[in-house]
Simulated assay, not measured.
Amino acid sequence: MRVCTLDPITLEDVTDLENAPFIMDGDLKIYFQSEANKCEYLDIPMHGGENSPGLKKIFDDMADCAITGSIN
């Protein structure tokens, strides 16, 4: 099992692993500093895969970005 003690919401290390909320995602255990952070993380919408409209928009936006140039 892999363990992540960096709260993905605050990007701070979780030190009290005995009392910290966590989720299991396959073989990954992710710890959070608070239950509120855990809920916020779980509320983040997933992009839905390679053919999702949300992910396509991200790629399209990057393709038109002056920094990355055109990839079309």
Rank of each mutant, 00 (worst) to 15 (best):
M1S: 14
M1L: 14
R2G: 01
V3E: 15
C4W: 04
T5K: 15
T5G: 01
T5D: 15
L6K: 14
D7A: 14
D7P: 02
P8S: 07
I9M: 14
I9W: 08
T10W: 01
L11E: 12
E12S: 11
D13G: 04
D13T: 08
V14P: 07
V14G: 10
L17M: 13
A20Y: 02
P21H: 10
P21Q: 07
I23L: 08
I23D: 04
I23Q: 05
I23M: 03
I23G: 04
M24N: 01
D25V: 07
D25G: 04
G26H: 11
G26W: 07
G26A: 14
D27A: 04
L28T: 03
L28F: 05
K29V: 05
K29C: 03
F32E: 02
Q33G: 14
Q33A: 04
S34W: 04
S34Y: 00
S34E: 06
E35N: 08
E35I: 05
N37T: 03
C39S: 14
C39P: 00
E40L: 05
Y41I: 06
Y41E: 01
Y41W: 13
I44W: 11
M46Y: 06
M46E: 02
H47K: 04
H47C: 03
H47D: 07
G48S: 00
G48C: 01
G48L: 08
G49F: 03
G49W: 06
G49E: 04
P53C: 08
P53T: 07
P53H: 06
G54L: 11
G54E: 13
K56I: 13
K56N: 10
I58G: 01
I58N: 03
D61I: 09
D61W: 08
A63Y: 03
A63K: 12
D64V: 02
D64T: 10
C65P: 00
C65L: 13
A66F: 04
A66C: 07
T68Y: 15
T68C: 10
G69M: 10
G69P: 07
G69Q: 09
S70H: 12
S70Y: 10
I71M: 13
